[in-house]
Design a protein around this nucleic acid. Structure first.
Lengths: 121, 121
DNA sequence: CGGGATCCTTGGCGATACTG
DNA sequence: CAGTATCGCCAAGGATCCCG
């Protein structure tokens, strides 16, 4: 039987890793196709994108909708429960931004999507 | 020059990894000695504890205070800025708890410190 | 266009022993 | 009591090729 040390570990297991937050970042803005994600998530490979999306789907945070057509079209979107992640991501995003300014006031460290925001409706 | 994809990655780099949240968890309750941490953070080795604490100190989240005596006494505490992490940890903690109940309502997955809370003053 | 399979590299982490 | 040094594992992630 699986056991965590604390509740935070659960979140980190769900949104942790190298790509999850970057993917979720775009998903908070609305449904999105695989190719679009691949284009936006800088540097991710086809394989890693698929792997991460499957995990997010397995964890009940996103849905995968396939359109029966050629060429294939697949669209991903946050589930209703996944939507609850938005406020969490926003808090993390805000603190990260503050921390950045606090630690590196002269811009030694930068963020690609620095002027972008988690999509809160 | 270092560059992140988004601000969330910054947070995850600071509190991520296998032990950081578990350590911070106890630090939110007040200053604490090395040995006490080692006792509370179930399963951590002496080495990993030291490594994680050094990283947290390097990142400006905790302070290390040594008392000049034999046997040695070292006490760690959140910095003023580190205190700002509390609300972030609380949000993560809360979401993790919700997610646990939502995904595993029958207790297939459990948390050791489930009835404990992040120390908010 | 979207996904799967295979092979390989790397660094986070563990185990152990030693020091002041 | 607190910290350091060394060795080694393994799973996350990367590169590449193949499929409907």
């Amino acid at each position: 039987m699986k056991q965590y040390n604390n509740r935070i570990e659960i979140v980190l297991e769900v949104i942790g890793g190298k790509w999850k937050t970057h993917i979720l970042y775009y998903l908070t803005k609305g449904p999105i196709r695989t190719g679009e994600l691949k284009r936006l998530v800088t540097g991710i490979s086809q394989k890693m994108l698929t792997v991460q999306l499957k995990e997010l789907e397995r964890d009940g945070l996103i849905t995968r909708k396939t359109y029966d057509q050629v060429p294939p079209k697949v669209e991903y979107a946050l589930t209703e429960y996944g939507e609850s992640l938005k406020e969490v991501l926003k808090v993390l995003c805000d603190w990260g931004g503050d921390y950045l300014k606090h630690r590196y006031p002269n811009g030694e460290v930068t963020v690609r999507n620095s002027d972008d925001e988690i999509g809160i409706q």
